[in-house]
């Protein structure tokens, strides 16, 4: 039954026409599912859009509150030692979601210190806390206060948005090369194993010949 399913699936895979893979790849990065929609693969576009965008927006909603919107998605490059060390490596994963993660870049270039964020603090970097400037209250949006207000929702939101970005890499490669043909991969693996086995056998035979001489 499984073999029958596999052959059915392979036949459908072989028939796929990947229209302009490079354009589709860019579109797939910009908006998850858009590249597949461009290629006419509507069902898969829906699966990618629902899963990836759903996960991203759910994570972003979890990290929203009085402190602003989607506070777990932001760019910060503060590597100064001391109280305000905040390097945001998670954004390297989140950015693969494409356009939905762009407001974080705009906010960073608008005001990297987070003192005057746009759009009600949507994806804005936390307020930079400078030692010796006691102007900050319990209600400011420094990273400590954001974490205190959002509690574990900040971490869960970060994980979800970062995973959504990484999952979109699958969609991007799918738009570029099409789905992985598992059976072909298995055949290739078997062929390589067989070649390796033959080489080892030939080597052993050569060694035996030397021993006889």
């Amino acid at each position: 039954m499984r073999d029958k399913d596999k052959s059915k699936d392979r036949t459908k895979t072989d028939e796929i026409q990947l229209r302009d893979p490079y354009i589709a790849c860019w579109l797939a990065w910009l908006v998850p599912g858009l590249g597949h929609l461009y290629q006419g693969r509507k069902a898969k576009a829906l699966v990618y859009a629902v899963c990836i965008l759903g996960l991203f927006f759910f994570g972003a909603a979890l990290s929203s509150g009085k402190c602003g919107l989607a506070r777990c998605v932001y760019v910060a490059m503060r590597n100064s030692p001391g109280a305000d060390r905040d390097m945001r490596y998670y954004y390297l994963a989140q950015v693969w979601v494409g356009v939905p993660a762009f407001p974080a870049l705009i906010q960073y270039f608008h005001d990297p210190d987070g003192e005057d964020p746009l759009w009600n603090g949507l994806m804005a970097p936390p307020l930079k806390v400078t030692p010796g400037r006691p102007i900050y209250s319990e209600n400011d949006n420094s990273i400590d206060n954001i974490r205190k207000k959002l509690n574990r929702r900040f971490e869960v939101g970060t994980l979800m948005t970062a995973m959504a970005g990484l999952l979109n890499l699958f969609a991007i490669f799918d738009a570029l090369y099409g789905p992985v043909n598992e059976e072909q991969e298995e055949q290739e693996r078997q062929r390589r194993l067989e070649e390796k086995r033959l080489r080892r056998k030939a080597k052993r035979r050569k060694g035996d010949d030397f021993a006889e001489v």
Binding site: T13, K44, F170, A171, D174, E182
Partner: peptide, 8 residues
């Protein structure tokens, strides 16, 4: 998503 990248 993983499954979608393997099947059409």
């Amino acid at each position: 998503v993983y499954s979608a990248s393997r099947h059409e």
